[in-house]
Nucleic acid binder design. Structure first.
Lengths: 336, 336
DNA sequence: CCTCCTAACTTAATCGTTTTCGTGGTTTAA
DNA sequence: TTAAACCACGAAAACGATTAAGTTAGGAGG
């Protein structure tokens, strides 16, 4: 590998001058700078990030906590596309991305240890168990941190507007004349809590009282689980006129249960999903759903984290809510 | 940050001894080793990977080329789950993963430059334009390289069995009595070529002659494009009895076109996908498809790359084909 | 008793950068 | 003419680790 030393020798100047010339410092003559720049290119010089990091204590590397909880991490479109836009923005700003795991070398340690070992400038928690003590340790360390869809005290968080999203969805189906609205919610997480709040807020505001048996649970991103939940709902003495599913993907299971019961969407029963995945617009009939703005979620998370990294004193931790929008598909019928 | 020096001072030994003690070298006394180990823990020591990399020229970091070609990278289950299992295996072996982009800092360079800058020990090309000169440059550099689904000369590659997969699929539907088999293939890539070969090989072996208009194209992972292609097929004077789609996801578009034509699957027309995504087993009727073994593809790719990294002289570059398997769903009807 | 070996350390160089503090030499101002 | 200011560059000290090459001290062997 060709280093600063090689360039220095070739140009007959010191290593210091070469470094300054390449880094655009001002105290170096224009002719020397040009000479350095051209020989650097000529020799095919590439900087050594390790040496630079060692000296400057900056790696331009961002650690990503992205755990494949129940196999729905990478393959879950919401997380996948958020990560993609995060990566895009980070790279645009000159940062690289490294996954934070629990092992350095062959031995297992904590997330924080791993982050410190790699010397990342900051950490983004995209997909993880937020209540895990090891995650807590990481969040409340000295490292700049941004989290997605979970707000830690005094730390920057980027949140999808789950309350408003669910509320809007309920108001939409209410506007279509539906009163018997069922909600199959997901696992017990902060996200679920928010959506529940949104659901009940809308109901209260609209003067709706929803029987308890209309509120049931399934696992996120698990069509089979959703299939069963849907079946339970359809077996009730008074069936709902509209079912809100936990997410778009689970809807695949739900629609099966509906078809098995000999019902059609939206003629016999209306449904809506949540997420606004690519798939939602492709299925027929088009799924009515709340589209989360993954592109903005990822971009803002990256931008915020970098802001915290580059201006640790002046930037302040904040909780940013990113608005989604209603995708009015064809699965909610107007009741007369 | 606490460094070797701090531990050395506290223990009253030299930095060298501390380093050796922590790295399990043999020429250090048992009592000193214990003392070093315990004070290291006590002070909360974390090694500095940058310093280590600088000295040893090893980063235990693997670069990943994962370009979001036409938005189907991260969100494409095939790539996403291959990447997941790659990451898992790499981490198990003590390696971390960093994405290779085209910019170091604010300026844009080549993939190779970026890889060299970060000093990765090797590179895995999971999802990229294999014909891009910049990719070629990377592949034929000094770095250990493994590629997925594209075989470079003298470099290790892990390949899904596209020829055999497609061949098996054709033989399966042939076995069900189908003779008028259409194939909507994907974009022009090496993968498509292989599947085409498999398709024609099976036809030849079975004595089938497929009319040219039965072979049509759509974009991978793009239901709308597949929708149109399907429509074209259904408008032919003699329609096929079975349509093979480019991939499971595109099937969503295909099924819409079929339903619009007033046909049912599998009663009126049979179909099959390709990939074996999670979704394929969830839709109703269950999709008949060829399941690629993403778990093994990722795992083997990582293991092979690490083998090349750790034994560059003795290990040899090879092209490994990973077998998939037929998922016999419910979308191919037995013809009488 | 002397030599030699070995175990257990230490010394010091080195990896490639960055950055502070000089140091001459030249220009400018008084 | 002289002092101050400025410019372009160099010397050298880090950053934190690894490792080859010494250096002890103590014991074994003759």
């Amino acid at each position: 590998m060709v280093s600063l030393k090689d360039i220095a020798q070739r140009c007959g100047v010191s290593v210091a001058t070469v470094s300054k010339a390449l880094n655009g410092q001002q105290d170096v003559g224009e002719t020397t700078r040009q000479r350095v720049l051209s020989t650097a290119k000529e020799l095919g010089y590439t900087a050594n990030s390790a040496a630079r990091a060692l000296k400057t204590n900056r790696t331009y590397n961002i650690g990503i906590l992205f755990m494949d909880l129940s196999n729905s991490g990478f393959t879950h479109e919401y997380f996948a596309s958020t990560l993609t836009s995060f990566r895009l923005e980070a790279e645009r700003c000159g940062y690289d991305i490294t996954f934070i795991s629990r092992n350095v070398g062959q031995t297992s340690t904590s997330y924080l240890q791993h982050a410190l070992y790699r010397g990342v400038d900051g950490v983004a928690i995209i997909c993880a168990d937020f209540l895990d003590p090891m995650v807590q340790e990481l969040v409340y360390s000295q490292l700049p941190v941004v989290s997605l869809d979970h707000a830690f005290n005094n730390r920057t968080a980027v949140l999808s507007d789950n309350i408003n999203g669910m509320e809007s969805l309920v108001r939409f189906v209410y506007g279509k004349g539906h009163r018997r609205i069922a909600y199959i919610h997901g696992n017990n997480t902060a996200v679920t809590e928010s959506r529940m709040t949104g659901f009940y807020r809308a109901c209260e505001a609209l003067g709706l009282t929803i029987p308890d048996e209309y509120i049931t649970q399934c696992e996120y991103h698990e069509p089979i689980s959703c299939h069963k939940a849907t079946k339970r709902l359809l077996a009730l003495p008074t069936t709902p006129t509209c079912i809100l599913f936990s997410d778009d993907y689970s809807y695949i299971g739900g629609i099966n249960a509906i078809q098995e019961a000999g019902l059609r969407v939206p003629e016999d029963i209306s449904v809506a999903g949540y997420d606004g995945t690519h798939m939602a617009t492709m299925v027929s009939p088009k799924l009515t759903t709340w589209q989360q703005n993954t592109q903005e979620l990822g971009r803002i998370a990256a931008a915020q984290l970098i802001e915290r990294i580059e201006h640790p004193r002046t930037s302040l931790p904040q909780h940013i809510v990113v608005q989604g929008k209603l995708l009015e598909g064809e699965t909610v019928r107007q009741l007369d």
